Amino acid sequence: MLNQYMEQIETLGLNFFFAAIFFFIGMAIRDVLKQGDVPKFGQYIVWLVLFLGCAGFVAKGIIQMTWESSGIG
């Protein structure tokens, strides 16, 4: 039974791994911004870029899942 779902388990594990990486990157950036005494505008730009990277990753996953379910990919 586990062999049937091995690809789904791998995909889910990889997605959780990427989510954890984004979390740790965010924590590291937060620490650097705090210790570097970065102005608020600069902090907003940094967080915007991080959010857009994460949103792109999520959008890629949704598009990939949509295409695979419709038989395109």
Rank of each mutant, 00 (worst) to 15 (best):
W67A: 11
G61C: 10
A59D: 08
L2I: 10
K40D: 13
I72M: 00
L33W: 04
E10K: 11
W47E: 07
A59Y: 13
I72Q: 00
E10Q: 03
I9Y: 09
I62L: 10
F57K: 02
V46Q: 00
A28Q: 12
L33C: 09
P39Y: 01
A55Q: 05
A59V: 13
R30E: 15
I21Y: 02
S70D: 08
T11P: 06
P39R: 02
F17T: 09
E7D: 12
Y44V: 15
V38M: 01
I25S: 07
M27Y: 11
F57Y: 06
I29A: 14
I45L: 15
M6C: 12
N15C: 05
Q4W: 02
A28S: 12
F51A: 11
I62S: 01
Y44C: 14
I45H: 09
M65N: 07
I63E: 04
Q35M: 01
Q64Y: 13
I21R: 07
I45E: 12
G53P: 05
F23G: 01
E10C: 04
M1Y: 04
G26S: 00
I29G: 08
N15W: 01
I63L: 03
L52K: 00
A20S: 14
K34I: 14
A28R: 14
F24T: 10
R30M: 10
S70F: 07
L12S: 08
L52F: 04
I25Y: 01
A28T: 11
I21K: 01
Q43G: 14
E10P: 03
I29T: 10
N15R: 12
G73C: 11
G26V: 04
G73E: 09
M65S: 11
F22Y: 08
G36P: 03
E7P: 02
Q8Y: 04
F16P: 00
K34W: 12
L50Q: 12
W47C: 05
N15E: 10
V49G: 04
E7V: 14
A19Y: 02
D37I: 04
V49C: 07
L52I: 06
C54K: 09
K40Q: 15
M27S: 08
S69K: 11
L48M: 14
N3S: 11
E10N: 02
A55Y: 08
W67G: 00
G73K: 12
V58T: 13
L52Y: 06
